[in-house]
């Protein structure tokens, strides 16, 4: 890539930091230059977040309809999947899957709820009383 081709499209990192890139200068030698961002990357990131927000919205609906427990919603909200949530709570994925059912969730002990709440950065009552 030539130095003058380095994209300078303000992205999420703008106002915040710039990116170091290796580019060719006029003499055909490599040197470093700072980039403010690139639209192609920005769109990739935006579409990823769009997808995340859709998933969160679907999860909220599912909780509101009584199909899933609040654990499912907060898992999506915090961008987690079963292995990640399992890591933060210390509960095996097999059990977490069960806890996604509203009927099983209702009977969870305070200790388990406490673990989930800590992983999600919320209070136990927020977790318990989330209605979608």
């Amino acid at each position: 890539m030539k130095k003058e081709d380095l994209p300078q499209d303000p992205g999420a990192l703008d106002q915040f930091t710039r990116e170091v890139c290796y580019v060719k200068n006029q003499d055909g030698k490599y040197e470093t230059a700072l980039s403010r961002g690139w639209d192609v990357k920005k769109d990739a990131l935006d579409s990823a977040w769009e997808n995340v927000n859709e998933r969160i919205e679907e999860a909220r609906q599912a909780v509101a309809n009584g199909e899933k427990s609040p654990v499912y919603y907060f898992m999506e909200l915090k961008l987690m999947d079963l292995p990640v949530l399992s890591g933060y709570t210390g509960i095996f994925p097999f059990f977490i899957k069960r806890h996604l059912k509203p009927s099983v969730f209702k009977g969870l002990s305070d200790r388990k709820l406490e673990k989930y709440a800590r992983a999600f950065d919320i209070s136990v009552s927020e977790l318990k009383n989330f209605k979608g």
Partner: peptide, 16 residues
Amino acid sequence: SLYLGQIVRMQEEIGT
């Protein structure tokens, strides 16, 4: 298309 977006992010975003 989400998968392709993921490739681009892996390719251009994370790290250099």
